[in-house]
Structures are given as C-alpha cells and as structure tokens.
Design a protein around this nucleic acid. Structure first.
Lengths: 187, 187
DNA sequence: GTTAAAATTTGATCTGGATCAAATAATCAC
DNA sequence: GTGATTATTTGATCCAGATCAAATTTTAAC
C-alpha cells in the first residue's frame, strides 16, 4: 500500500481520510505468468496498479496478437476505453510475468472522484504524463527507421526490455519479428 | 462565449460563478492566415479555444516543417509540454486559416483549477477524449498502408481535410508529399 | 532427461513507399 | 492583371523492411 501512496504523492498531497478510503477500496490481486487478466469480450471493471511484474495489453488482428502497450511497476493498467465507458473494448490484458497489483473498481474510483477533488487533480496530472509518452511514441512511429524505433523502445523501457519476449516487442513497434531479430543481431 | 460554455457543458455543469470567472479570464484573439501564434523559442503561456478557423502545431526536423496536429473549431490548441511545464517546447503554432479564438493564460487556468474542482473534472474528462484519438492514431500509424492512413485521416478530419494543404497532411501522416499526391490521384 | 511445442534466428525474394528530378498549377504581392 | 513564389503532380529509380520458407534454439510438460 505504501507503494501506491508514494505514487499518488508524486502528484497530490494525500490526506489521512483519502489514504483510509484508498486502503479500503484497493484490493491486492495476483496473476501468474501467462494468465489472462481481461478478455476483450468483457468490460474492464477494474484498473490495476502494478506493484511487481508486468501486464500487457493486446488486441487481435487477423487472428494474431498485436501488443499495444506494457505496464510495469508503479503504473496503472486497464483497457482504457472499456474502463472509461464500462462497455466491452478491444483489448485483452495478460500477465507476461508473475504480477502483484492493487485493483480498484470503476465504481469505487468514480465515488472517489465525487468525494475527493484532489483525486480529479491526480488523474488530470498523471494523465498528462502518459499523454507525453503517447506523443513521443507517435513521433517515433512516424519518422524513424526500425533501428531507431527499437533504440527508442530500449530507452523508454530501460531496464525492463529484457523481460519482454521478442515477438511482443516487434508488434508493439509495428515491425516484424524477423526484422527485430536481425536488428538485435546487429545487422 | 456561448460556444465555449457549450463545450464545457459537454463534460460538466457550469455554475453561474464559474461562467462569470471564465468570461473574465478568456480573451478573444484573432490570427490572420499564416500568422505565427507561438515560436518554439518561447514558452506557451496561453491555450486557445478555437471559435472559427484552424491552428496547426509543427516542429522543425532537418530544417523542414513537420506537422504534428491540427486544431479546429471547438478544440483547444497549445504546445502541450510547454504549456504544462511553462518552459519553451519544441512546437511552433501557426494559423492555417484566419482564426478567431478565446485565449486563457496558464496562470488563470491554474487558479481556476484551485478554486473550481469541476474544472479539474472537465480537464480529466476532456483529456480522455484526446487520449482516445492519440491511441487510434498510434494504431493507424503502425499497421496501415499509406492509403489506409490517408483514409483514416479523411475520416478523423471529416469536413475539414480540404482546408489543409497537402504537404502538411503528408507530414502529419508520416508519408511524403509525392506519395500522398499519387494516392489522391487514385493510383 | 526426453519429447513436443514455442520462440528466435537465418536465408532468399519481393514491394510499397522513399528519394531524386523536373514539369505544371495554384496563390500571392504589388 | 502580371510576374514571382509556393504548392502539387508526374516520372524514374532505389532500398528498408515485409513476406515466405525453413533451420535452430529455447522452454515447458511429463
């Protein structure tokens, strides 16, 4: 729980009341490696704050898994559109490592937003951070070679990249496995 | 001012007090076609809500202008990172059409956030909308042909695309002008 | 440990879109 | 309006990375 509080404290000051409320609604969960966290057929009712491990969001295209993003320690993971609209979305979530996380339900979160304005602020500010990452990723996708994309990935997921299978990295970058394999071999 | 209020009302209920405050800090501005709205050397101190016209954000790469996004009627335009951090950023903003907008300064906005929790909510929810667009754009950039990227653009900027010069569209899509020209000719 | 299944590497070929170059067409300044 | 600048189209060539195919390595199940 300390990890969660520390994360919130990067953006807002946590009152004791809010701490107590958070502690009351956050539920520790564990996923084993390879476990499906969310099926795209279902609505994403909970968001997961990762304590240890890594989750992945992917969708299916022509029957193949296309990885859209990874979430590691001290990041939230959910199926954004589905969690926001509370309708089924396109993403599957799975655990690519044994993962410990704290889960919060959409309804509990909404209730916190209603009662704690600082939660709104936290959400606004932390979204800003993610926003920046998305814009960088767009720039990287548009104007860089496969090699540069991979280098950018290594930098973004510094210290984490070796934990992710090559095929997933390739689809995340929008290049083929073969190309990525050759890049890594240094050709 | 009604246009601005209508926009806010899509996300929150505007109290009379907040309306009055907004009216007090929003300043009407006009830019003529081609006018530079923000130089990348400078800090983006204001955000512009566009009433009519279109602004564009671009950066320089090898001396050439690379368009990153367009903002049209009922959208906000600023240099995101610069506006958020109040440090100079990488973006230039210019008007690609004669544009009428309402400007709000970063300091006024911060003050509104401090005094009106519903402004925090507005920001969180409206960012969610933009967030969705960015994710779609990422998907479009990674796995689609030039033709599909252009089709996606036409769809996203439905009714607006004909107002944007081809070269800007091409750099927005991350393809060359020549390729886009050929696509449009239907080859 | 042995075998089967999955992930990664390596090889050969092909192609969409880039690049380089130049001709037209549209827009602007005066 | 007219010349000059800027935007768009068209043509020829080239290459990064895709695709198709298969070998090799790694991982997992029993």
């Amino acid at each position: 729980m300390d990890t969660v509080f520390a994360h919130f404290s990067r953006y807002i000051t946590l009152s004791d009341t809010l701490k107590a409320e958070l502690a009351a609604v956050l539920e520790p969960v564990h996923f084993s490696k390879g476990e499906l966290v969310l099926d795209a057929e279902r609505t994403c009712t909970r968001s997961y704050f990762i304590i240890e491990g890594m989750l992945r969001a992917y969708f299916l295209k022509d029957g193949k898994e296309i990885t859209d993003f990874f979430s590691a320690e001290e990041e939230w993971c959910n199926s954004p559109k589905s969690f926001y609209t509370q309708q089924p979305g396109e993403y599957y979530l799975d655990a690519i490592e044994p993962t410990d996380a704290m889960a919060i339900s959409a309804r509990d979160l909404v209730s916190l937003f209603d009662r704690f304005p600082e939660m709104e602020r936290y959400a606004r500010l932390s979204m800003g951070t993610v926003f920046g990452h998305l814009m960088e990723r767009i720039a990287s996708l548009r104007f860089t070679s496969a090699k540069e994309k991979y280098d950018h990935f290594l930098q973004t997921y510094e210290g984490i990249h070796h934990r992710i299978p090559l095929g997933m990295v390739a689809s995340y970058l929008g290049i083929t496995q073969e190309t990525l394999s050759r890049l890594r071999a240094g050709k």
